[in-house]
């Protein structure tokens, strides 16, 4: 039932190119650099967000504890979610500019350079 609508790609040189690049060391390195950043960081910020939501949902007393003036723990926690979002954004951009873009560009030039 499958492959009826797949373009018959197995043998064409165009298709082979993608497979070759996917198997190359440079590509493996690029994939590794992307995943080793985005997967743990995604897990981290989702866990941090979930912790915040659970505290706000089930620990009213703790979140309502005043820290100074009328500023309570909940407000500080909430504002820290803003801070962590801004920080992760900045760190990711730095990581991408430094570690991902040059390698991606090199691979892109190699792929588009030959006969496309």
């Amino acid at each position: 039932m499958s492959s009826v609508e797949h373009t018959p790609s197995e043998s064409s040189p165009e298709a082979q190119k993608w497979v070759d690049v996917q198997a190359s060391d440079d590509f493996a390195e690029l994939k590794h650099r992307l995943r080793k950043f985005v997967f743990p960081v995604s897990g981290l910020f989702l866990a941090w967000y979930l912790l915040y939501v659970l505290l706000a949902d089930y620990a009213h007393g703790f979140m309502s504890t005043k820290v100074f003036g009328n500023i309570n723990v909940g407000l500080i926690f909430g504002l820290l979610q803003f801070v962590s979002t801004f920080v992760i954004t900045t760190l990711y951009v730095r990581h991408a500019n430094k570690n991902l873009d040059p390698l991606a560009e090199k691979l892109r030039n190699e792929i588009e350079g030959d006969g496309k």
Binding site: M1, S2, S3, H6, S9, E10, A15, W18, V19, V21, Q22, F27, L30, K31, L34, A104, E105, L107, R108, I111, E112, K116
Partner: peptide, 22 residues
């Protein structure tokens, strides 16, 4: 599903998605 993912298309998609080629 018995339907196998198309490995060539998968290669193309993965390479394109990460490098921006094409």
């Amino acid at each position: 599903s018995k339907d196998k993912a198309d490995p060539v298309k998968q290669a193309e998609m993965e390479v394109r998605s990460l490098t921006g080629a094409g």
